[in-house]
Design a protein around this nucleic acid. Structure first.
Length: 111
DNA sequence: TTTATGGCTGTCA
DNA sequence: ATGACAGCCATAA
């Protein structure tokens, strides 16, 4: 696995329950600006049976992006709702309310 | 190597 | 608000 992927996974793991982050946000926090897309690839390449809360990553619009593969988006939405993340009638999340704000309490890279 | 594609994003109409 | 476009750059072929 490349160090970039490791960084991305590390950031995603730090997203608190009931919160979400955008791809661009995760990329930036992982020290990989401008690589929102690659975050998507990283999550896509995620092996099954891991502890990574991949479902807490959504696009900048606050909605779950459709997979080119199958129907992982449905499960993603279901998982988020079960965590308390609310979707509005448009199927979107209010980022003003649920977006994860980084802070000293939830370090991305605790050495 | 080059080309095409994509779980994105910011800007502009 | 939505839709079209152009950057972005890692992967896959």
């Amino acid at each position: 696995m490349s160090p970039d992927y490791a960084s991305i996974y590390e950031v995603v793991e730090n997203i608190p329950r009931g919160r979400v982050a955008t791809y661009g946000q995760v990329a930036a926090l992982a020290g990989l600006p401008r690589r929102a897309r690659q975050v998507g690839y990283a999550l896509h390449a995620l092996p099954p049976g891991n502890t990574i809360p991949w479902h807490r990553v959504v696009n900048a619009k606050g909605e779950v992006s459709a997979r080119s593969d199958g129907d992982g988006d449905l499960e993603q939405r279901a998982r988020l709702e079960s965590e308390g993340v609310q979707f509005n009638a448009r199927g979107r999340i209010d980022l003003r309310q649920f977006r994860w704000l980084i802070s000293a309490q939830d370090p991305v890279d605790p050495l």
